[in-house]
């Protein structure tokens, strides 16, 4: 595991323990995807509203803790700022609020929304194009993709040939228990997207997929594991879906993480 990803995961555990909140397994599954985006996109953490920045929208907003820790790892703020996660006067809620979090382009939480906003942003970047092609990235979950709105957004994005629009699809088997979406890459390709399937925990592979040139919307299907990095989490995803570790559990999970036994 790359050092930055291990650091983000350890902070997710620490903050969840301290605050008593957080969806840890789903935050763990997207760490490499987030790092890949922030290591690829045009952004400046010291100027989060930089006019010509690329945009990222976390559509599966309940993975906010992973998002905040990734922003912190890339210099938007300190990890310590996030320790008040979920507290009354904190900027860091259990779903992101764009009016409070530097780097959050949309306030999300209800599933199936961020992708539509991102389609509008990609089109807006094209209509208001000042010469530079601005990229828009959104990260959606496989469970979220049970929502029909996701597929409405994909159909419109392909119809508009939004070649500056990238979806990162967190294929972490969230919906295996109820409404699975088999062969997602084939489905997105059938809808007219450029679909690329990668190991979502291979940072270099995700980054390569994000830079493949395309003339249409791109979907990077990232095959991931909920709770990746801690066997206790990945083996017990339902129990840990929304649960903060107690002190002894924190030490155990940090031990598993740092042992690198995934």
């Amino acid at each position: 595991m790359d050092a930055i990803c291990e650091k983000i995961r350890s902070e997710i555990l620490n903050i969840s323990h301290k605050s008593g909140h957080g969806h840890i397994p789903t935050s763990f599954s997207i760490v490499e995807m987030l790092v890949a985006v922030y290591q690829t996109m045009n952004h400046d953490p010291k100027r989060p509203n930089m006019p010509d920045r690329d945009l990222f929208v976390l559509s599966k907003g309940h993975a906010s803790l992973g998002f905040y820790c990734s922003l912190a790892a890339h210099g938007y703020f300190n990890f310590e700022d996030v320790y008040a996660f979920g507290a009354f006067d904190s900027n860091f809620g259990c779903h992101p609020d764009r009016t409070k979090v530097p780097g959050a382009e949309a306030s999300t939480g209800s599933l199936g929304h961020g992708i539509g906003l991102a389609v509008g942003m990609a089109l807006g970047a094209r209509i208001g194009n000042s010469g530079k092609k601005r990229q828009v990235y959104t990260l959606i979950g496989d469970g979220e993709s049970n929502e029909g709105s996701v597929w409405e957004a994909i159909m419109v994005a392909t119809n508009l040939k939004l070649d500056n629009f990238t979806v990162l699809y967190d294929n972490n088997n969230s919906q295996g228990r109820c409404l699975p979406i088999p062969n997602p890459a084939e489905r997105f390709a059938a809808f007219g997207c450029q679909a690329i399937e990668v190991d979502g925990h291979d940072l270099a592979a995700v980054k390569r997929a994000l830079t493949v040139s395309t003339d249409r919307p791109r979907v990077v299907v990232c095959n991931t594991v909920k709770g990746y990095g801690c066997k206790t989490l990945s083996d017990n995803v339902y129990e840990w879906h929304r649960r903060a570790p107690k002190p002894d559990e924190l030490n155990m999970l940090l031990g598993e993480l740092h042992a690198g036994n995934v």
Partner: peptide
Amino acid sequence: GMVAGMAQ
């Protein structure tokens, strides 16, 4: 959804 993103 998309008019929201466009306005943004």
